[in-house]
Design a protein around this nucleic acid. Structure first.
Lengths: 135, 135
DNA sequence: TATAGTACTATACTAAAGTATAGTGTATCT
DNA sequence: AGATACACTATACTTTAGTATAGTACTATA
């Protein structure tokens, strides 16, 4: 465990409160809600795969379909709509014939980067740990 | 958007690849899997609430029930089992009569701290943004 | 012998997330 | 007139997550 992490944990522990369980949950209510909000926005089978694609450029609907061969159109359009509602991606319609629609990560979408890095790092480390524990 | 964040985003963007969609998803396969692993471990209605409680001390099964009045015993014991399997929490049995069982966050569990902080901060900022956008 | 306390487990159900498959609207090309 | 391209939408279904409610195993105390 590196020094940076230790420090963060110690800082975090400084906020602990010594109260009965119900009061603790109440005390962290706002933070817990924030966590659930975030998780709702990025969880699910497809959200992060779509975000990963759009981190690498602007793609058309049909290109996204090619990148995710197992997604159904219903799911793809629903997920894109959700991401757009949360302003993480931008949808642009080209009035060519036939129409083309392209999607890209918005500047706001890129604010997810630190979170994406943490999710990735923790997951990679966890896999290593699980493997090591098996021996 | 602060300087730190900008820097992280620029670093992140340096890893972008210019390839067809299918190859991009393939290229980030390992990282996407890691993200899904992490999300699976901390997602759901109860996981973070339990973790939040256990960040603040050691609690008995019945105390956790009091902290989360709406959880069913089936869910509570299932979630605790999951968290224990992933070694995020430690279960200790006191052979008193009647038996007492207590749970606490493990040292490994505390490695989630940076992630918890990111999830919280992003969620709080997002709520602010959504509120501001409404005006 | 019956009741109570602790930490659960079992069974059946409902709700949410995701899948399968077919169809729509617009406009060009053959 | 019919086929094709693109970006979806509609309906029905299955799977997973979570809920409701009752019951178990152990032992002590009344």
């Amino acid at each position: 465990m590196d020094k940076e992490l230790r420090k963060k944990i110690e800082e975090f522990k400084a906020y602990r409160i010594n109260k009965p369980p119900l009061e603790i949950v109440e005390h962290y209510k706002k933070e817990l809600l924030a966590i659930q909000d975030t998780l709702e926005i990025i969880s699910g089978r497809w959200k992060m795969q779509i975000i990963a694609l759009l981190c690498n450029g602007e793609f058309r609907y049909s290109e996204l379909e090619k990148g995710l061969p197992k997604i159904t159109p219903r799911m793809l359009s629903k997920e894109l709509k959700d991401l757009e509602i949360n302003e993480l991606i931008e949808r642009k319609v080209y009035t060519t014939i036939p129409v083309k629609v392209s999607y890209k990560l918005s500047d706001y979408g890129y604010t997810l980067v630190p979170l994406i890095i943490e999710l990735t790092n923790w997951g990679l480390a966890h896999r290593k740990k699980i493997m090591k524990d098996k021996d």
